[in-house]
Design a binder for these strands. Structure first.
Length: 266
DNA sequence: ACATTGACCTGAGAGC
DNA sequence: TGCTCTCAGGTCAATG
């Protein structure tokens, strides 16, 4: 679930539900996801305050706390947020639960505990300190900045997309979609990309991520020529009908079309 | 620099 | 039913 489009939707969800309400209590059910501060420290930072805004960098979501500072959240592979009232609908793996004065709750749920909740004084400084590259959908990441991010690298195109220090936000699923739309084979070295191919990759990245947000990250709503809904055993290329190929790149399962994404020469 | 592997966690699904 | 194995959308550290 939580790649850039998913986190962007979570950002909008939080902004639409949980802002401007006084926080009455904070319950940490599992402190494994909490880093850099204790459950008590978290409660002290939040109690009596409210969330004033929400921003995002790559796969990190920042909830601005009025006064100062931000609650920074990463969702690992299984994390999400849920705003709710009735305890019966509380997520099963709610690791942190915030109670508001209006009787509602916001739960940070993370089944596999690979996510992280921490404190950030400033999102930009936090991103820099974590070594994150520019946000893949950010305005400041234009074609020139993208070329700069690619410059001097020799990694496989897929590895570059997954490298959060190069570009922040793309994960395994959308990397496959971006490469498919750009018609670039996953193991193509970015050093070997022609100028025009670099641009195609850049445009596909922007287009795929924006489209995914618009489609609410629901594969059922994706354009008909998208790979994602067919990504899996027995899937066929939506463009040419060939059976999709499967391989490992950077340790991650990768699907591609051998016809539309010809392997690099040599 | 880059790829690979295993570790961190839990749960779903396949095969026996 | 229950066991074992594999796999999963993320990241980090160690190793070659």
């Amino acid at each position: 679930m939580p790649e850039l489009p998913d986190v962007e939707l979570l950002r909008r969800y939080l902004a639409a539900t949980a802002l401007h309400q006084e926080i009455q209590a904070v319950e940490v059910g599992d402190d494994q996801v909490l880093t850099g501060l204790s459950p008590r420290g978290l409660a002290l930072a939040l109690r009596g305050r409210s969330f004033a805004g929400a921003s995002r960098h790559g796969k990190f979501l920042f909830a601005r706390v009025d006064g100062e500072g931000h609650l920074a959240m990463h969702f690992g592979m299984t994390g999400f947020l849920k705003y709710f009232r009735r305890p019966q609908v509380r997520p099963r793996h709610a690791r942190i639960q915030i109670a508001f004065a209006n009787g509602y709750f916001l739960a940070y749920s993370c089944q596999r505990k690979l996510g992280e909740v921490t404190w950030a004084d400033d999102p930009a400084a936090f991103a820099a300190q974590r070594g994150l590259g520019p946000d893949a959908l950010g305005r400041d990441l234009d074609l020139a900045a993208f070329r700069a991010a690619v410059q001097g690298r020799r990694a496989a195109a897929k590895s570059l997309l997954l490298d959060q220090t190069a570009l922040a936000g793309v994960g395994n699923l959308y990397a496959d979609e971006i490469l498919f739309q750009a018609r670039i084979h996953p193991t193509t070295s970015v050093a070997g990309l022609k100028c025009q191919e670099q641009e195609r990759l850049f445009r596909a990245m922007k287009q795929v991520l924006a489209t995914a947000v618009r489609c609410r990250a629901d594969p059922g709503q994706f354009p008909l020529d998208y790979l994602l809904p067919r990504r899996g055993a027995g899937g066929r290329c939506p463009r040419c009908g060939r059976c999709l190929q499967r391989m490992k790149v950077s340790g991650r399962t990768t699907y591609y079309c051998s016809g539309c994404q010809p392997p690099p020469l040599g």
